[in-house]
């Protein structure tokens, strides 16, 4: 009695799952589609009611304006700030993580203090930092923001890398020590290759955190190192918005992240699950 209905129901169940999956994809992807599509629309198409669901032709005028006015350079700023700070955060963070994982430096207390830094709300530290930066002349400089992003990413990098390093068999490092490596060489020749996938996953997330930052950039940049997130908000108006620019700028700022995630995909899936398990 029960075996047959099960088999008959199997097909319907799969169809139902597909239906739900499709509805979900439409709901979650449509806004992204809308953002992209507006960036290719002409003003007439943007300001049409009822809205134009798909444009008749793709045109790049909205992007051309951004490049002509120099607004697109803010994406370059974001790219510099996020990649340089990720680079430094990975180096300093991995070193610190190795120290914590292998030598238990400072005991569990130091490790907990470091992760607690991550809970610090940006808005609570940005104000005193702003005053410090004004005094030091670091406002609106690459150096100032890179320093800030590096420091702000450190707890995450240290926490993640500590987990990955603890998974490396100690014997590999000891063997390298006996074979004639210095401590630094062990870090470079054994630990880094062994933690490679974790290193990549952590780097991508660190990059995305810095890339997505809005508040720090809003407060600590003026004109020189404005990031793309701040630039997008410049097109918001009280009465009317520069829709074409908002959309085009957002797309410009989204593409590098889509690209990075697509390339690094296989490391990320493991990174998410392992990182989550380890906390």
């Amino acid at each position: 009695m029960s075996a047959l209905p099960f088999h008959r129901r199997h097909g319907t169940r799969l169809a139902l799952r597909y239906l739900i999956a499709l509805v979900l994809v439409v709901i979650f992807v449509f806004p992204v589609y809308w953002l992209f599509i507006i960036s290719f629309k002409t003003p007439d198409e943007i300001f049409a009611s009822p809205p134009v669901w798909y444009p008749q032709s793709i045109q790049f005028a909205n992007y051309r304006v951004l490049f002509k006015d120099g607004d697109a350079a803010t994406v370059g700023n974001s790219l510099i700030l996020a990649s340089v700070s990720t680079f430094f955060a990975m180096i300093l963070g991995t070193m610190a993580a190795y120290s914590l994982a292998r030598f238990k430096t400072g005991g569990e207390n130091l490790a907990v203090w470091i992760i607690s830094q991550r809970m610090m709300p940006p808005v609570a530290i940005v104000f005193p930092l702003f005053l410090l930066y004004v005094w030091l002349g670091w406002v609106d400089t690459y150096f100032g923001l890179i320093l800030l992003y590096t420091a702000f990413s450190l707890p995450y990098v240290i926490w993640m890398m500590r987990g990955y390093i603890e998974d490396i068999p100690l014997e590999l490092e000891e063997s390298a020590l006996v074979d004639g490596c210095t401590r630094w060489e062990v870090l470079w020749k054994v630990v880094l290759p062994m933690a490679r996938s974790g290193l990549f996953a952590t780097a991508v997330f660190t990059f995305i955190f810095a890339w997505n930052d809005f508040l720090f950039a809003l407060v600590l940049t003026r004109t020189e190192v404005t990031t793309y997130t701040v630039q997008v908000t410049h097109y918001f108006g009280g009465q009317s918005n520069f829709w074409a620019k908002i959309a085009a700028m957002s797309v410009l700022g989204t593409i590098p992240v889509f690209f990075t995630v697509a390339v690094m995909q296989r490391y990320l899936v493991r990174g998410i699950s392992m990182g989550a398990v380890k906390g």
Partner: peptide, 24 residues
């Protein structure tokens, strides 16, 4: 493919997510 598409909202910047919904 489904999973990859569903993850899109999470990897765009929150400020862009806000901007997108402002348009929506």
């Amino acid at each position: 493919v489904f999973i990859a598409l569903l993850v899109l909202p999470t990897i765009i910047s929150p400020i862009v997510a806000g901007a997108t919904w402002r348009l929506m």
